[in-house]
Amino acid sequence: MKDSRASLPLQVEWADREAARSGNYRRQSGLSRRPTASMASVVGVVDHEDRQRAARAGVIDLTMVPHTGYRGTAAADWLAAQGYPLPLVPNQASTSANGDRILRLSMREFWLLGSLDDLGQTITTLPTRMTDTPANCYPLFCGDSHAWLLLTGEHIADVMAKLCAVDLREAQFPEGSIAQTSVARVGAIVVRQQVNGLPAFAILCDVNSSDYMWTVLVDAVQEFDGGPIGIDCLRSGND
């Protein structure tokens, strides 16, 4: 495999200046950065072929784009009061007007993924302390506990067929579907989305597995002439 652990740099100059960094930051050492609302950055551009790779099978680490969650019997009412359109049944996702993604993981648990257009700005305005939300609505720390990888392009279902037992083809798993399952033997949440006109899977797994999940995905997309991409080609207005 191209990026083996042994060849990764020990020191990454920009990473020392940021408030936080993803588990994969060493793999991103030489690439241009795009700051997000979390005071940390994601890869902006890998090279001039990002767009073509994203259309086939692209992989990007969005862990540093703000994402959060709320749980409890009052979570649904509170989120609706904040203006979020909520899916009515578990394991469905919806999109807010500014592009935040709302994942309903059970009747009482919701995760919010920051918009790639405002780079998570709206998510950072939401409360993170239990004292700032109503009773029975608890903020979750999935922004810290879970890595967020995005797989894009026409071959996403073929890529996932190698890694996951659930049928994720569009006919069985349309846009907005969520599967909480095992991906490459690691527990993960898979969400089908449209990102800037491309079919995509958001894959959320434990941060401690993000380095492993990255290598697995990058290895799996090679067959489809895919590879790492930057966030710039996924933001609207950048077509």
Partner: peptide, 10 residues
């Protein structure tokens, strides 16, 4: 009941 049919090893 929440996620539908899944492999037993999950």
């Amino acid at each position: 009941p929440l996620n539908g049919p899944r492999n037993i090893n999950e």
